[in-house]
Amino acid sequence: MDPIIILQAGVATGTVLLFATVGEILAERSGVLNLGVEGMMLIGAMSAINIAVRTGNPWLGLLVAMVASGLLSQIHAVIAIQFRADQVVSGLALNFAAVGLSLVFGEGLSKAGAVALLPTYTLPVLYQIPVIGPIFFTKQSVMVYIGYLLIPLVWVYIHRTRPGMHLRAIGEFPGAADALGINVARLRHLYVFLGGMLAGVAGATISLAVAPGWFSELTTSGQGWIAIGLVIFAQWDPLRAAFGSYAFGALRRLILDIQGPTVLLGLRNPFYYNPYWGFFLQMIPYAFTIAVLVLGSREAVRKRLGAPAALGLPYARGERGL
């Protein structure tokens, strides 16, 4: 129960949520709610390990996971953007279809045996920083470092660049963006695609790095839904999303590790001697998500922050509405 080790593993676990959350932030900022994250993550995890087993190349697995989840997200994009259907039902539909497809194509994968994983690195110099070094820069998967790069990149993109301003515009007031010559439908397709790709990356990060293997629906065990909750907690901001993701990652690790030692804080460890209490520990991430949503929505009311104004609303030129 070394706190450094728990936090180190927590950062790796949290990276999964980070990719999924940032991807959903991009989609929702453009005005499209995509509830299919869990399913797209499963497709990503399944295709990543499937390709890695067949070819022995985890990088190819990662690439295929990105493309597969990105293409799948376009089903939702077409139905939500072109057909202007209800985005909640369409997202759920995508989710169910994706879960089913991943189960069908993943049949037998759990018995695949050893598979080449994505490499881990220790960053020179940085790893020597006390506390920070061992947690963030020692023996972490390459995906963790990609995650570090993604956070500032997406923040700067959204808040400081012209395309980022267009992204915010089509999510807040697509009518005005359209009048300025921005192609609302095309950009929304693009950001839903990016969101899908990142969900695929999140899935591949599970099956090829953080918790290697294929365990059918248990591979993600609801992390896609937690990511959608985190987007609300993060108030559509990648920095807050990163904070939330790593905190959740550490929590998940702590729950796994707390049952190990016989002595906890100098006392008999009740979780070791009552292994069935583990079921209550399992509930914590889900209960915590609900708690975080309560906190997030109260803060949103106080600061008058909120979702992108056009979130979940289809845009049709010339019709009344946003």
């Binding site: 989710n95 089913g100 497809l101 189960l103």
Partner: peptide, 10 residues
């Protein structure tokens, strides 16, 4: 494979 009913529902 066993996921077929779920897939068809989706």
């Amino acid at each position: 494979p066993s996921g077929v009913p779920k897939m068809i529902q989706g």
